[in-house]
Design a protein around this nucleic acid. Structure first.
Length: 860
RNA sequence: GCCUGGGUGGCGGAACAGGUAGACGCAAGGGACUUAAAAUCCCUCGGAGCUUAGCUCUGUACGAGUUCGAUUCUCGUCCCAGGCACCA
């Protein structure tokens, strides 16, 4: 065995060997228990970044561990290859989205292979391939048939100069992120998936996901946002029209003094028609449509509204209520109409104060609360007042009584409302999966016949000026014949699908990636699915996971699969962070642009730099580490080791170059230890006897070996706490350094063989290259095929115990005793301890607590 | 505002079921080896104090509480991070 650890040589050697012998290829084997381990597939953005490295290292350790435990492990990798960055890059670099994407995939595949991940590369998929998205189109047709996919008019963020739809995150303070011009709301016909049909089911099953982090479950629940309340009908004065509102506070209906409709509400213009308010209302609607109503913009606008000129009648109090249209009423929630109760809702209170509207108190917590002196709304509980027959009732009871009353008198009914809206999947983009629909002047919307799938995205088209999709202008794509009437003037749908659609089912495709007769081979899916462990960034905690859960239900209800939840266990890893370096003249600096040491300075201007707080790595802050550099300098094993050692996976990881050095040093230590002992242990048999066969001075080591196996196994199995697992191995290695090769004996050699084997086996999921190298030096073949070591429970038993003695809960002394001692004897030893006697100093003992074989607490 | 997490040495982090706080690593300091340096190996390392082989006090954001005993459980406060947010 070489004396020096040379990761560059070892790693490329083993990577080639694994690839040539298809070490990580896996196939369906019903005789073996399966384990499906999946990491969220990456968007091929160029190069892998440190977040990928962390995510995929965590997954790889679990995959390798489960394989060594005897599972048939499915561990695939692929590319979430459609999406806007490809278009942006194409514009910036004057290349083509397809070329850019495929180049990136090649680079990133090579980098992932350099990391030594145990993927079955034969299952690689790229969602931009027609073989993949044809099945997405096929399912779209099925969803269209059963009404799950539908088309409707909907408001979108629209940028006029760019002639394009913007996602909410592309709207910055009401302006287009690209051209900086105002964004307006525009009505467009778009395709939707009816995810709201499953809102309740998705919500209820949140509680049946014990393997998911509580935080993610909570986020999903919030997103779905179910609230129970009532619909109430308000008649419009001098009209046959009715306004329906949704409220969760029907107990306050007697306090409703005005009505607010969303500006887009269909009744707004109708109500103001012909009144003196008409043009004011129209101006208001026009102005509000220019406002950015995405989450970011919303708080910047003041609450405002305009009287429509019409009135409605409160069905319970009989009061006349002015009808307003207001910017805070949202068309997308409830019914788009709000009964405003200023006394008990802060927003309504502010609005009423601004426009001088009446405030009526209907829930009173105590005698002091009075409309005349109220400075804010009272949203809490209390006794009903000003509420007719309901006066004197506790408002929680009135909530039910009034709901009953509404139902009995047909003025409304109990109902639930969800925050979740149907999933709009149309994108006016080029680089996405075409929606397989045809528009015919005569027949309307006609689905593409199944046998004509896939509708292939032309990969050679160029983006138009401003990054617009060329699809509508490409006659050879857009012009087609109507499958129904044969008309030659039919046009294809030129919108493409949201890329979340591809990622909602890819995990199933991995089960049979080359299957040509359907989305997937049922036999394979039945064997592998659901995913046993899913691992990815917490940034996908809501949308990707919710869409995947929804899609899985759609597939199940079509009879294509038999499970409801796609991911049994979920791990969301934390962000990778690093300190920022900021120069007063040059702004953020890359770490290497500043000098080293205590007084760090900008290399260009020699100003002192400020070391900022530790933040998520991002290109804009320049606090990034390129995995490529790490691989060059230390190799994959060190990089993997550090990612796991620095913190537990769900927490954020603070990058620290010296920490990486430490990990590298540890692997060197392991290497030197093995190299030193190799000549002697190579031909020795690992010690296999009982502890009693060993000389007393070797028993400690024997125990340490088994304790380490136990610790590492439970840390990986139960908690994914690789950092403590690695510490345990470090402790064992430290202990082994206490033995000198020069003082070896046959007994030590056998035990050392066991020790070294254990260290290598336990490290192998984390650092597979060095492990395979040393493993082969020991005369073995592939460590991936080896079994995970088993600890001897009897070796964990202690024959001597340390018992702690406390006085009034404070540590005062400790002693060692044989493990089979009883509590009474422990108490006696504690009381006769010299130091304890000194502290007690003859004071009366009130109580003695003995914790079995662990502790004595004497209360004085 | 609401919902999640989190706050432990100079730093990353341990302490898994209330029972020895600070495992393991980094940084720092000291020593050995060396002509020298690197590498390596060994020792020290929360704070304060003292009559310094050791001992005492103090210490897990802050304030209460439960308990023989609290980093761990309960309540309140502050701060940090993430998510949601005119959601009626």
């Amino acid at each position: 065995m070489e004396e020096r650890y040379t990761p560059a040589e070892i790693e490329s050697k083993w990577q080639k060997l694994w690839e040539d012998s298809k070490t990580y290829k896996v196939s369906d084997d019903p005789k073996k228990e399966k384990f499906y381990l999946l990491e969220m597939f990456p968007y091929p953005s160029g190069k892998i970044h440190i977040g990928h490295v962390r995510n995929y290292t965590i997954g790889d350790v679990v995959a390798r561990y489960k394989h060594m435990k005897g599972f048939n492990v499915l561990h695939p990798m692929g590319w979430d290859a459609f999406g806007m960055p490809a278009e942006n890059a194409a514009i910036a670099n004057r290349t083509h989205p397809a070329i850019w994407t495929y180049n990136n995939i090649d680079t990133m595949r090579r980098q992932l292979k350099q990391m030594g991940f145990s993927y079955d590369w034969d299952r690689e998929i790229a969602t931009c391939r027609p073989e993949y998205y044809r099945w997405e189109q096929w399912l779209f047709l099925k969803m269209y048939e059963n009404g799950m996919a539908y088309r409707k008019e909907s408001y979108v963020n629209w940028c006029d100069p760019c002639q394009t739809v913007l996602a909410n995150e592309q709207v910055e303070a009401g302006m287009c992120w690209r051209c900086g011009k105002p964004v307006r709301q525009k009505k467009l016909a778009q395709w939707f998936f009816r995810i709201t049909d499953y809102a309740d089911d998705l919500l209820v099953h949140c509680d049946l996901l014990p393997g998911w982090p509580d935080m993610v479950v909570a986020m999903q629940k919030n997103w779905i946002g179910k609230s129970a309340g009532a619909e109430i009908h308000f008649n419009v004065e001098n009209s046959s029209e009715q306004i329906v509102v949704f409220t969760t506070r029907q107990d306050t209906v007697f306090g409703a003094t005005f009505m607010c409709l969303a500006p887009e509400h269909p009744m707004v213009q109708k109500l103001s028609l012909g009144t003196s308010q008409e043009h004011l209302v129209n101006d208001f609607i026009e102005r509000i449509s220019m406002q950015d109503r995405s989450s970011k913009g919303i708080e910047t606008y003041e609450k405002e509204g305009v009287f429509t000129g019409a009135w409605c009648i409160n069905p319970l109090s009989g009061t006349r209520m002015p009808i307003y249209t207001a910017n805070f009423a949202l068309m997308g929630y409830g019914t788009g109409a709000v009964m405003s109760v200023p006394a008990h809702d802060q927003r309504d209170f502010d609005f009423a104060k601004k426009y001088g509207l009446e405030i009526v108190l209907v829930v009173k917590p105590n005698a002091d609360l009075d409309v005349a002196t109220m400075s804010e709304a009272y949203p809490g509980d209390g006794i009903m007042v000003n509420s007719g027959n309901f006066n004197g009732m506790q408002n929680e009871l009135a909530l039910e009584s009034i709901a009953d009353y509404l139902e009995v008198h047909r003025l409304g009914k109990r109902t639930v409302s969800f925050r979740l809206r149907d999933w709009g999947i149309s994108r006016q983009r080029y680089w996405g999966a075409p929606i397989p629909m045809i528009h015919c002047d005569a027949c309307g919307i006609v689905p593409v016949p199944e046998k004509e799938l896939p509708v292939v995205l032309p990969e050679d088209a160029d983006l138009l000026v401003g990054g617009l999709s060329p699809l509508p202008t490409l006659d050879y794509f857009a012009r087609t014949t109507c499958p129904k009437c044969g008309s030659h003037s039919a046009r294809r749908e030129t919108d493409t699908m949201d890329t979340f659609v591809e990622s909602s089912w890819y995990f199933q495709r991995y089960c049979s990636p080359d299957y040509h007769d359907g989305m997937f081979d049922h036999k394979s899916v039945d064997y592998w699915m659901p995913v046993d462990q899913y691992i990815g960034g917490v940034e996908h905690a809501i949308l990707h996971l919710l869409y995947s859960r929804y899609y899985t239900r759609v597939l199940r209800d079509m009879g294509l699969i038999s499970y409801k939840e796609p991911f049994t266990r979920l791990l969301t890893q934390g962000m990778v962070c690093k300190e920022t370096v900021h120069c007063p003249t040059h702004g953020y600096l890359f770490p290497e642009e500043a000098t080293e040491g205590k007084d760090r300075r900008c290399k260009r201007c020699h100003h002192s730099v400020t070391i900022g707080r530790v933040e998520k790595m991002s290109k804009s802050k320049k606090n990034v580490v390129d995995p490529h550099i790490l691989l060059e300098k230390y190799g994959a094993d060190t990089t993997r080791l550090f990612c796991l050692f620095a913190s537990p996976p769900e927490r954020s990881l603070e990058w620290n170059e010296q920490g990486v050095e430490g990990s590298f040093r540890f692997l060197n230590r392991v290497w030197r230890l093995c190299a030193a002992w190799m000549p002697f242990v190579r031909s020795a048999a690992a010690f296999d006897g009982a502890m009693d066969d060993l000389a007393p001075e070797l028993r400690g080591l024997y125990k340490k070996i088994h304790q380490t196996i136990f610790k590492v196994t439970s840390d990986i199995e139960d908690r994914f706490h690789f950092n403590t697992a690695i510490s345990a191995v470090m402790e064992l290695v430290n202990m082994l350094y206490g033995f000198s090769v020069d003082e070896r004996s046959p007994a030590i050699t056998g035990l050392f063989r066991l020790a070294i084997e254990s260290v290598i086996l336990l490290l192998s999921p984390v650092t597979p290259h060095i492990a395979d190298e040393i493993w082969s030096e020991l005369g073995n073949t592939s460590i991936y095929a080896a079994s995970w070591p088993i600890y001897r429970p009897e070796a964990l038993l202690k024959d001597m115990l340390t018992v702690v003695v406390q006085i009034n809960g404070k540590l005062r002394s400790k002693f060692s005793v044989a493990a089979d001692i009883d509590d009474a004897a422990i108490e006696q030893i504690a009381l006769s301890d010299e130091r304890i006697k000194k502290v007690i100093d003859g004071k009366p003992i009130k109580k003695i607590v003995v914790v079995q074989k662990k502790l004595v607490n004497i209360v004085i």
